Simulated scan of single mutants.
Amino acid sequence: MRDNRQAEPAGKARPVISISDLRKKFGGLEVLKGISLAADQGEVITILGSSGSGKSTMLRCVNMLEVPTSGTIAIDGEVIEMRSTRQGIQPASRKQVDRIRSKAAMVFQSFNLWSHMTVLENVIEAPVHVQKRPRQECIAEAEMLLAKVGLSAKKESYPRHLSGGQQQRAAIARALAQKPSVLLFDEPTSALDPELVGEVLKVMRELADEGRTMLIVTHEIAFAREVSNRIVFLDGGRIEASGTPAELFAEGTNERFSRFVSRNN
């Protein structure tokens, strides 16, 4: 089982991911209301909260699937540059966005595999065509990653021939193939039948034990308590509580968090 103590800072090393005063509006609705969060190397942070609290929006802003209204985001010390346009705030450089997405690889709740490609082709697509790495090198690494997630026998299969759990494990292998600095998981088990959830959580536990830096939006409270160095509880677009699992689950620590846990257990 993972040691749930908060990761110790390594000297003056900068965080792998740093979010400062992040805000996001959809029309007149402010979904994120000044989120600040940093993750150190090897830290696993799970984000909990009710539907509509801003969890997924925050994660999607990190790799520019949603463009923040304001605030700053940095991956490995590289701040994502923004500029004002007639359409509003936009990323200043498409090349930088592609680079950031490779550094902050995302695993979606709905898998998002390319249906016309085999599992192997899905895994090598970004390394070959975005990162411009040698194809044979990418294939060799992809085969190792598929073995890691238990899908060696499915490398020539198409997504439609896989179970939901297998598709999500393929999506994790695809994210790992980019050699990211941080893995972003957006409700990775919410689209799965209950009997398939465990196989995906097992792979995620193994990644946590390897010391991967991970931000995980999840509704799996027991899993969050087990694997996290830190849990962040969002409520109404703000961080309502943050701490180690031991701190947050201590009786009387935060009334709103306690109510959330009791409703979702």
Score class of each variant (00 low, 15 high):
R60H: 02
R60V: 06
C61A: 08
V62C: 04
N63L: 00
M64I: 04
M64S: 00
M64V: 02
L65N: 02
L65W: 07
E66R: 08
T69N: 03
S70V: 01
S70Q: 12
S70K: 10
S70C: 03
S70I: 05
G71D: 10
G71K: 10
G71R: 10
T72K: 00
I73E: 00
I75R: 06
I75K: 01
I75H: 01
G77M: 07
E78C: 02
V79F: 04
V79Y: 05
I80W: 01
E81D: 09
S84Y: 08
S84D: 14
R86V: 15
R86G: 15
R86D: 15
Q87T: 14
G88L: 07
G88S: 01
I89H: 05
A92H: 03
A92T: 05
A92G: 09
S93F: 07
R94E: 11
R94Q: 13
K95R: 14
K95D: 11
K95L: 13
Q96A: 00
R99K: 12
I100P: 00
I100C: 03
R101T: 06
R101S: 02
S102P: 01
S102N: 11
K103W: 06
K103Q: 08
A104F: 05
M106T: 04
M106R: 12
F108H: 13
F108V: 06
S110W: 10
S110A: 13
S110I: 13
S110C: 11
S110Y: 08
N112W: 03
W114R: 12
W114G: 10
H116S: 14
H116I: 13
H116M: 13
V119W: 11
L120K: 12
L120V: 13
N122G: 11
V123N: 07
V128D: 10
V128P: 00
H129G: 09
H129K: 15
H129R: 15
H129A: 12
H129F: 13
V130F: 09
V130N: 11
Q131E: 09
Q131V: 05
K132Y: 09
R133E: 09
P134H: 13
